[in-house]
């Protein structure tokens, strides 16, 4: 998952997304279907046949995310994956990464955004390039409601 998207200008959105599958040897038809499914999940199904320069910054970013999560990956690396996105689409991206994790993918997300970080199971803090701290596994949300402030 790239911060500057790295979509290929000569390919449409869906061709970009299905390319890694085709390179893996997946038959074109199957790769195309998987690419469409990933675009659909990020709300880009209608734009599948557009070229990158016909997409907005946020749409390009979502297309590049779809490309990163498509197919059977074991490891997902994401550098500020919601940089150009509004909060709704940023959330859609994190849901997609989370869904990948539930399928058994390990994801490492680098971010300055605490909203994004809070989707992670474990947050590791870097300071001046060094690991200084990490979160402990949080208790369930129910305990949070029990301690909510009284009116």
């Amino acid at each position: 998952m790239f911060q500057d998207f790295n979509l290929l200008a000569g390919l449409t959105a869906v061709e970009n997304v299905s390319l890694p599958l085709e390179l893996d040897g997946v038959p074109a038809k199957k790769a195309h279907a998987a690419g469409m499914a990933a675009l659909e999940e990020l709300g880009l199904a209608d734009l599948a046949t557009r070229y990158p320069d016909e997409l907005s910054g946020g749409e390009r970013q979502r297309a590049s995310i779809a490309r990163a999560v498509v197919g059977e990956r074991h490891l997902l690396l994401a550098d500020e994956p919601s940089g150009a996105l509004d909060s709704t689409n940023g959330e859609a991206v994190m849901r997609m990464i989370l869904a990948a994790c539930k399928r058994g993918v390990a994801a490492v997300v680098v971010t300055h955004d605490a909203h994004l970080a809070s989707w992670a199971e474990r947050v590791v803090f870097l300071r001046d390039g060094r690991v200084v701290d990490q979160t402990v596994t949080p208790p369930s949300p129910e305990s949070l409601l029990a301690t909510a402030p009284k009116p």
Partner: peptide, 26 residues
């Protein structure tokens, strides 16, 4: 002081994790 800041930062991120978990089940 930067260690003190980190203690609070971690606590707040942990709180955010709990709230975010409520969102998971859309």
């Amino acid at each position: 002081v930067r260690d003190v800041i980190q203690v609070h930062r971690r606590y707040l991120v942990e709180l955010m994790q709990m709230w975010t978990r409520l969102k998971e089940d859309e």
